[in-house]
Design a protein around this nucleic acid. Structure first.
Lengths: 238, 238
DNA sequence: AAATCAAATTGTATCAAATACAATATATAA
DNA sequence: TTATATATTGTATTTGATACAATTTGATTT
């Protein structure tokens, strides 16, 4: 009975993105596996199989908390990845079966993105542990189809930011300079923007509010800090 | 072993959207079920369980072809739906188990959207069959979480159309008037647009090309037909 | 056949936003 | 004290958005 259906395993994977002031980075987990008797090291997205009765969103939240120690980070599911060829690399299959203690032929994963402030994420749990930030434009070959998942997550971010630019402020520190904001726009949309015009445009937005505090220790005129005002932003949309 | 993992079934569901010249419609399937001895009728999205070894995208394509007879329609996966509460309605569980001949506690579905030209879709297979177009702003209560899936599909369409408006032309007939195009924009984005300004703006786009042919049989000045030029469009983006 | 209707299409004027780029200000470093 | 590197402000120009009046043209009505 029921044997026309695959024995499918289901997992979640989280693409945690951060902005280091210069480019986008993704949080990856070191993986140690074995291939033909030899040990190897590579990286993968933080993920986990879904537990019995566990909601997808809860599973994603669980993974994120276990990894970063952070809670209440908005996570957004954006796509499932379920190609048969996800498990075409024997390295991955071998690793999976050792980790799961079960025969795995097919694993469908539900992918999430989270946008975090890099500074606040690197808690003691992360230091020297198995997690690390890697620039998204310099990724090595990752486990499974994780390179593809990250590419899709970036695409999702870009699309989301067009409709609702407020998501970008989740990537900036609470206090940020206009230059940081501009660099973020440049890196997300892959464009070059005029600094002077961008400055005027953004600082006249009611939701980008100036603080008294200024940058310190830079070898030039210190930039003013701004913060994002969620309330003011929401008022700009109906 | 392996009993900490749920026995999960996996399916695909297709949200096939069309534009009837006035509003968006979605293609639904009539469903006949049984509840407490009484037969009932309602509607659901076209979907199917994934076959063994079948790619997700292939499953979606298969469903779409079986339903509409059309092939080569671009389908886009946009999200998985896997909440435990998807099967909270006993009606749905009962229906599933009768259809699947198996005990089903949890079914995760991978959702796709397809945009089609309504006129070309209604083939003989559809006439009098179990499929029908229903306006998305007048949907009854559907099976499972299909109302939610359709809402997400519309959201996905809106977001996609902001970044890449060319997707909208998949919803229009090959020859269309500017008024049809404008109504589509209005209905997708939920806004009212000035007819004169929209006309000038669109007809000056290099990818909206005027044809000689005009509308016939309308009780006023006949509108000119235009067509969408994919090549010209692509040249406008890098 | 002429007048009428309704929507298509064209015109024009105004206002707002995008862009270019010069000029000024101000932390630290030399 | 001057030099350097950005931050920030100014100004002029171009382009696009918006409002709305005017004209055109099939079909229908008189």
């Amino acid at each position: 009975m029921d044997n026309s259906l695959a024995k499918i395993h289901l997992s979640v994977d989280c693409t945690v993105l951060g902005f280091n002031g210069n480019r986008l980075e993704v949080l990856l987990i070191r993986r140690t596996g074995e291939e033909g008797g030899k040990e190897f090291h590579d990286m993968k997205l933080p993920g986990s199989l879904i537990l019995d009765q566990e909601e997808l969103d809860d599973a994603a939240r669980r993974v994120l908390t276990e990894l970063t120690g952070l809670k209440n980070i908005p996570l957004q599911q954006f796509r499932a990845f379920g190609s048969m060829s996800r498990t075409k690399d024997p390295k991955d299959v071998h690793w999976l079966e050792r980790a799961q203690q079960a025969h795995v032929t097919r694993i469908v994963t539900v992918a999430y993105v989270a946008l975090v402030k890099i500074g606040r994420t690197i808690t003691r749990d992360l230091e020297g542990s198995e997690a690390l930030w890697v620039p998204v434009d310099a990724l090595p070959q990752l486990a499974f189809d994780h390179n593809e998942i990250i590419a899709a997550a970036l695409d999702h971010l870009r699309n989301g930011a067009v409709t609702d630019p407020s998501v970008l402020y989740a990537l900036l520190p609470r206090k940020f300079t206009v230059t940081q904001l501009r660099t973020l726009y440049e890196v997300v949309f892959g464009v070059k923007l005029d600094a002077a015009n961008f400055y005027k445009k953004m600082t006249q937005m009611p939701y980008v509010v100036a603080l008294e505090e200024r940058e310190k220790g830079v070898a030039h005129r210190a930039a003013r800090y701004f913060r994002f005002d969620k309330n003011a932003y929401n008022k700009t949309r109906l």
